[in-house]
Write a protein that binds this DNA or RNA. Structure first.
Lengths: 219, 219
DNA sequence: TCCTTTCTGTTGTAAATACAACCGACTTGT
DNA sequence: ACAAGTCGGTTGTATTTACAACAGAAAGGA
């Protein structure tokens, strides 16, 4: 568990907390570290959740399959990101989405009650962690608003362009790597894969962008 | 300002705080109360925000107009609801949406710095308010996920049904009142108004629902 | 290496949507 | 009461999308 302290140190949750203090907090917060193989479910839709999770290594997708097998991908979780925070509130109800490992992954579980409430021992950082938690979920909130912005576009092309250009802004480069293959990108943008593939090629022919696998370059 | 204490008492932000303590906190938090006429902007896209807002009376829409005048409605804010919380984080950047009064409204402004940090006076409730804030934004987060679920549907009918049935669940009744007229509902679901109107009538003819103005009944 | 599976692009067709234009009912303000 | 504006429904057409089916390339396993 200790080996992930450098990872945790750079997360939003432990921002401003030193290495030693993180080590202390790991036991103070009753942290557990679980591992998942590619394809395994980390969380399932309908479950109750009382932990805040942090991805220590690997990569996850938040997604949802309906009755008919149509998949919708809500988002991607990279190393150091927090997830599950939205479902630990007392009145939150059960999870609306699955979380699945897209590669072998390790996940920290922190009991929210121990994160939020001041403990008896000498953890000076609870206040800061609660604030961090607030800022982290507030960031996630803005990300969701951003995604709603992509999804509110009427055409596949507009969805692609708004997503790709936002991603370019985030990655601070015109060359970007997406955490999705074509099918996943289509599920993320809620469009048909073949139509999207078609549209991507048209855009390439028009000189708007280039791509190879999941690497894209915008012009 | 005092007259709104009963309203504030029932908000998520002040949940668990007594009347007297709310009165005390109003000054302690440096609360300001501003009023807006129907159609006035409360917040504008691109602005910086350092306050957390609570709607004391009236009704607001969170929306966004693009270059070409296409409007997208992100959500509706009713009395007692918190808003702006997602944009008060240090690294949050500017607002992505406008907030506009759809009827004459009054809004409380609370400086986030005074909400989050412990004050010197005897406010025993800061910890609780920060927790409340966390839960409130976490609830808003779930609402955004819910909206993404509507928006991920491919057809206008599916969008309508998922939205209306979710609203029926929230309002705990098959008869629901929407905070939108037809154009606003279309902007909320990101579909064409006339196509949506058409679809609604088809659904009515098929016996799926009834409606009159902004009141709907599901069968 | 060979076989299987996955991934991506291509095409054609049916279905759904956007867009524009129009109409009548209803509101609002003067 | 009148005029102007708003609102919701209807229709037709052009555009866009979903869906299904297929094929070649790439990746992975035996």
């Amino acid at each position: 568990m200790k080996k992930f302290v450098p990872v945790l140190k750079r997360t939003k949750l432990f921002s401003g907390v030193g290495d030693d203090d993180i080590s202390t907090m790991l036991s103070c917060l009753g942290a557990r570290l679980l591992t998942y193989e590619k394809g395994e479910y980390v969380l399932r839709q309908g479950e109750h959740l009382s932990d805040i999770l942090v991805l220590a290594e690997g990569s996850l997708h938040i997604q949802r399959d309906d009755y008919w097998g149509n998949r919708s991908i809500l988002g991607h979780i990279g190393v150091g990101e927090i997830f599950g925070e939205a479902y630990v509130a007392p009145e939150s109800g059960t999870l609306l989405n699955d979380v699945i490992a897209v590669e072998d992954s390790s996940v920290f579980f922190f009991d929210v009650k121990r994160v939020i409430s001041t403990c008896s021992s000498a953890c000076r950082f609870h206040t800061m962690v609660v604030q961090n938690l607030f800022f982290a979920i507030s960031e996630k909130n803005r990300g969701l608003v951003q995604k709603l912005d992509y999804m509110s576009r009427r055409t596949t092309r507009e969805k692609l362009l708004s997503y790709l250009s936002e991603e370019a802004k985030k990655q601070n480069s015109a060359s970007i790597t997406l955490p999705f293959n074509r099918q996943q990108l289509a599920d993320y943008l809620s469009v048909d894969r073949s139509a999207m593939s078609n549209e991507l090629c048209k855009m390439r022919d028009e000189g708007l962008l280039e791509f190879e696998k999941n690497r894209f370059r915008l012009f």
